[in-house]
Amino acid sequence: MEERRLGGWLFVLPAALFIFAFTNLPLLATAVTSLYAAPIAGHGGGFVGLRNYLDLLADPGFRQSLVNNLLYAAVTVPAAMVLALAMALGVNAAIPGRAFLRLSFFLPTMLPMIAVGAIWLFFYTPQYGLVDRLTRLIGMGQINWLGDPSTALPAMMAVAIWKEAGFFMIFYLAALQNISPQLREAASLEGASRQYFFRRVTLPLLGPTTLFVAVTATISAFCVVDHVVEMTQGGPDNATSLLLYYVYDTGFRYWNVNSAAAATIVLVLILAALAATLFGLVGRRVHYR
């Protein structure tokens, strides 16, 4: 018994070492860094306790990034998931051109986010951008989507939904194809309507996929900011600044590594809390076969 346990530990050891070296250790180092202040031109510095965190709370830029990011996640995650499910249901049916549709829906996923940002920057350009032309066709005036603080964040959300939905569609599609056709046959024998079947059979069976997609989408809502770098640099008036972008700016443009470390810890705590909630509360209600 003892020997078996030792063997098990040995098997886990390489992976554990890597996780420790590349995940746990940096996190620990970040936490320690966040408790110190950087010397300014050779003056000051040293241990400051939680002051970096208090400074963050007092910084309107950080507060807005936090609010922006929560809003961004609250909109993009459900929207991308609903759209993904709808697309998966659509291309799961036997319709002509199915392969082409699947490819079209998946295409945005294959583009790097930085390329997506560059493309959408032109879509949103006033005057000759695609979006402006479409809105003009339906008689709306010129809208400077990325140039107005009130429309910039929604515009960025649309980019994220467009980019992510195709990826999540793949998971839903795989899950849908795993649902046994016998269930549908049985349901139709019993006279169940399509809506009833979807609500009582399909959706519960998609539970584990939905949980997985929800967690992945939430993480990406907090961890993918390439389009912000490419399109708006957090502007105008901080309207599109997301948490990770704030961390990047603070650390690598403003060289305040300690404050960036504190913001990173806040970000990690938010993600951990969200993941725990999703796995803990929602996970209990998920139907696993």
């Binding site: 830029g61 603080p149 009130s150 640099q233 502007g235 105008p236 008036d237 443009r253």
Partner: peptide, 21 residues
């Protein structure tokens, strides 16, 4: 000093004024 930060902050405030906020 801190030029990137100062530049970004004045840009954000300029943008707020240009957008009528």
């Amino acid at each position: 000093y801190q030029d990137a930060r100062i530049q970004t902050l004045i840009e954000n405030h300029i943008d707020a004024a240009l957008a009528g906020k």
